[in-house]
Each structure stands twice: as structure tokens, then as C-alpha cells.
């Protein structure tokens, strides 16, 4: 597997931790006044996780070892499609991951 440089990981962790704490506490600490959130952010916000997750998922499923494979030969794609159906109907994370992994193992 890809071995990420340990220092880079620590820098990422510290940066993410500080940035996330600032986001959580600016309003609680009164550093930022209420009503200062730009309306553009609050209307777009519900779309953000949907767009980011979708953009993370499809390349993970569609590429096999760096090659685009959009056919039933791509086990990841097949397992991902079934997992999507399971998630849509059951809204159960554990079941979704379990079914997806089981199908991947079965097809390999």
C-alpha cells in the first residue's frame, strides 16, 4: 500500500485539528458575531458533503490500478453499486460496509 510520509501525516493532523477547532468555536467564543455568516455559505452548505462524498467515491470505484474500467470486470464498481442500493434502502452503515466487502471478496 501507499506509504505516506509520517511527518506529512502529523502536519495534516495538527492542521486539521486546529482548523476544525477554530470552526467549532468562533461563534461560541463570540469572536465572530452572529449574523455574520455569508448567506452564500448557508444556502450552499447542505450540498457540500453530498458533492464531496460523490467526488471521492466515483474515482475510488471506477479506477483499477490507475486504469478506468467501467465494466462488470471491475469488482469494486460492482460491489459499490450493490452497497449503494443497500445504503439507500436500509440507511445502515455497518450493513452497507459488510455487504460491499463481502461482494468484493466473493468476486475476487
Amino acid at each position: 500500500m501507499a506509504n505516506v510520509d509520517s511527518t506529512i501525516i502529523w502536519i495534516a493532523i495538527v492542521g486539521i485539528a486546529i482548523g476544525t477547532y477554530v470552526l467549532r468555536s468562533v461563534f461560541l467564543l463570540g469572536i465572530q458575531r452572529l449574523g455574520d455568516i455569508p448567506p452564500a455559505i448557508s444556502t450552499v452548505l447542505p450540498f457540500v458533503p453530498i458533492a464531496v462524498f460523490a467526488a471521492l467515491i466515483t474515482p475510488d470505484l471506477a479506477y483499477l490500478d490507475g486504469l478506468l474500467v467501467l465494466s462488470p470486470r471491475n469488482e469494486q464498481l460492482m460491489a459499490g453499486l450493490v452497497a449503494f442500493v443497500v445504503a439507500w434502502y436500509t440507511e445502515n452503515m455497518l450493513l452497507t460496509v459488510g455487504v460491499g466487502m463481502a461482494i468484493l471478496w466473493f468476486l475476487q
Binding site: 458533503p49 475510488d60 445504503a87 452497507t96 460496509v97 460491499g100 466487502m101 468484493l104
Partner: peptide, 12 residues
Amino acid sequence: FAIPLIFIALLA
């Protein structure tokens, strides 16, 4: 492979 599966569980 659980990584995209978790995103699917959060998205769907």
C-alpha cells in the same frame, strides 16, 4: 475498500 463504502453509506 471500506473507505468508499463508508462514503456510500453517508451519501446514499
